[in-house]
Design a protein around this nucleic acid. Structure first.
Lengths: 199, 199
DNA sequence: CGCTTCTTTGGACAGTTGTCAAGAATTTTT
DNA sequence: AAAAATTCTTGACAACTGTCCAAAGAAGCG
């Protein structure tokens, strides 16, 4: 009992620190984020980070894992209540656009960390895992759409995800650069993509 | 005459240094590349970099511009000699797969720098310019394919580029993670994407 | 209360970073 | 050949990095 609550407290503080780290990373990007800057975004001193995390890589890895929960949840779109193909495509497109519009900085961080994972092998496994869960999420939409249209997907899971991700990333780039049409373009692109992938 | 040759020599050395910087960046990524490491990849000392470039940002910006020339040239596929839609799709797919297979590290760097441009405004304009030229390159293929099939593209330039780029990036990620099928999957995905975008 | 265990601090460390400037080395000009 | 202009090296600087540690503080427990 006593031991249990202690472990919980440690885990809680870890999450708290990782949360601050996540926000700092989202603000500054991986290349410009230091442990001291992260600590400045908490009520604690920089030394504490090494009490709860062995080193920088472990902290950021923990961050990435925590990000995943938020991410898939945020990213996920209400696909269950769609009754027609049109409704589903609409819901999917709206969900993606809303995810981008609500948390552009978090998604910016995701693309940053995914790029880092190509250099730093320590991040690779976790990033790949998140990528896979995002891919599954997209695939659920594609198969649901195929079911509603009595057709079958004409592409692989990986291809479907790659194309949606491409649209999303391009929209994010333009959105951050100040384009006011980026969100609408993403909506339209996503809506029109689904029919292309089944048949 | 004298003035001309001097300016040329300066420009030549700048290019030489930027080339070394480019290779260092491709090896280590933006976050892990320092001016001293770049200088170590040249025959000169670190101080020289500040003789030819005002600061780090100017050097990397110059790099990015230089990268563009290589990039579009490398990326570009032999579309002219294709006589049938099938040949064109094949040539396009082969070109992309070859670009990825020949210089994965350079493409890895591209995605890294594009992510950086979302944080560092100094890179944004140059990155956007490269992105646009890549988009135009893809669009040339799409319109050529549409012409050969007596059809019209059913998507915008930005959408076409986003989807090809998504495929390419996903293939790069898997290729770097050791997947042996990534190149073939990219080929197949690109070949099948063109028909989806016209009609 | 004292005693033990767990948290947290703040400073120190060795190394790295971008930047700069003085001067050596080299090239060009006269 | 001397003088002038340039290219390049070297060492220094202040700031910052991740990491570690001794000690202060807080909390729990007998």
């Amino acid at each position: 009992m006593r031991r249990r609550t202690r472990v919980d407290k440690v885990e809680e503080r870890r999450r708290e620190l990782a949360d601050a780290a996540l926000h700092t990373l989202a603000d500054l990007g991986y290349a410009r984020t230091s442990l001291r800057t992260i600590a400045d975004n908490t009520a604690f001193s920089h030394g504490l980070l090494h009490y709860y995390f062995a080193d920088k890589v472990e902290l950021i890895t923990y961050c990435v894992r925590q990000y995943k929960a938020d991410c898939v949840q945020r990213y996920d779109v209400a696909v269950a209540e769609a009754a027609t193909p049109g409704q589903l495509a609409e819901a999917c497109a709206d969900g993606l656009a809303a995810a981008l519009g609500d948390a552009p900085l978090m998604h910016r961080l995701w693309y940053d960390l995914r790029a880092q994972s190509m250099f730093e092998e320590a991040f690779r496994a976790d990033v790949a895992e998140i990528d896979e869960s995002l891919q599954n999420m997209i695939w659920r939409n594609v198969t649901a759409y195929a079911d509603l249209t009595d057709a079958k997907p004409t592409c692989t899971q990986a291809e479907a995800y790659a194309m949606f991700d491409g649209l999303f990333q391009q929209a994010l780039l333009r959105h951050l650069a100040g384009s006011t049409e980026a969100l609408d373009d993403l909506r339209r692109g996503a809506r029109e993509l689904l029919p292309r992938l089944v048949g």
